[in-house]
Write a protein that binds this DNA or RNA. Structure first.
Lengths: 190, 190
DNA sequence: GTCTATAGTTTGATAGAC
DNA sequence: GTCTATCAAACTATAGAC
């Protein structure tokens, strides 16, 4: 694997368990197997690394969401895939998704990363809003508020469910927290 | 104000904006107005400080929850007070509650603090479960799942709503995310 | 209880050889 | 692109005077 990618992987994993301030170039060095100084060739400052990790994450997730929207015949199907995305990122309570991890220590992030994080959240909510608008049309999910409010609630539920699960060190609380939402997505029994 | 309390206040505020790894004894020193070395008289190790901050927070919140339960005539009233608690801790998108902030960087917390955090979440879910059980009896809120699942969902929603709000730097997304839950608490129009 | 002084380590970062 | 060597600054923590 190319070194730059290995460094991004290591930094992302570390961020998702210990936060941005919780890992150092020394950690990456041990993990990837090159010297600290060599890391600066790929990412001159730690702020560059934060930007790159977040950019890669944001692109990957947003691309995935676009694919999900395209592949889903109903809004309910899209939400099911969305739920799975967050459920799997949790890794049985060992990890958080990057947006939760970076969101918590927000004020210690470099400014560029703070803006990327804000943009990612806005894009996520926009995608969810479109799905809830679609749900209002295809009736695959019943709305209990405006598509915009539902979108904010859905994102909050996913991020919060990860935190609650992690506090217990297992995936069970994530499943409990999202059970009601999951039930809304099940095909209605006539 | 006594120095120990001032230190705890400073450490809690710093944790809620930058995380446990995001502040140092030098920050507290500037903030409180005593020298770094003097802080060690009150909290010999930073781990002691983490424990103390989390213990004070946990006691305060749990006491408040007990008071809320006692003062509320219906489950809906208790949930309204609970919602306000999280909404106010947000400080218009500038801060998170301590359990969210510490939950994110969990793996870099001292072991004792990790256990305190797990216990606090368990206590919170237990309290919420009791309220939803109460709601099933007094019919002030309609249940869409077991009290236990509802409790996990409610806690996740509060914590997630704080994260989503903070990413945008305003309280608005918190209100959007919790609007549907708030609507469930409103007295039913006959 | 607070101070000065300082130890020992780790941090992010740079210069220059290969 | 990776290395050795090194830096200045920041970190947690301790000793001992007042």
């Amino acid at each position: 694997m190319d070194t730059r990618t290995a460094l991004l992987d290591s930094a992302e994993l570390a961020s998702r368990t210990r936060g941005y301030d919780g890992f150092s170039y020394a950690d990456l060095s041990r993990d990837v197997g090159i010297r600290k100084a060599s890391i600066h060739h790929h990412f001159p400052k730690k702020a560059d690394l934060a930007e790159a990790v977040l950019a890669r994450y944001s692109d990957a997730v947003l691309t995935r969401l676009a694919d999900i929207a395209k592949a889903s015949s109903t809004a309910a199907d899209a939400f099911k895939a969305y739920l799975t995305l967050y459920r799997e990122a949790l890794d049985d309570g060992r990890m958080l998704c990057l947006c939760v991890a970076f969101g918590a220590g927000r004020d210690s992030l470099p400014t560029a990363a703070q803006n990327q994080l804000t943009a990612f959240h806005a894009d996520s909510i926009a995608w969810l809003t479109r799905q809830f608008e679609c749900a209002a049309r295809d009736k695959s999910v019943s709305l209990s508020g405006s598509p915009r409010d539902e979108a904010a609630a859905c994102l909050a539920l996913m991020e919060g469910a990860q935190l609650v699960a992690r506090a217990s060190g297992s995936a069970a609380p994530f499943d409990q927290a999202t059970a009601a939402f999951g039930a809304r997505l099940a095909p209605t029994v006539q």
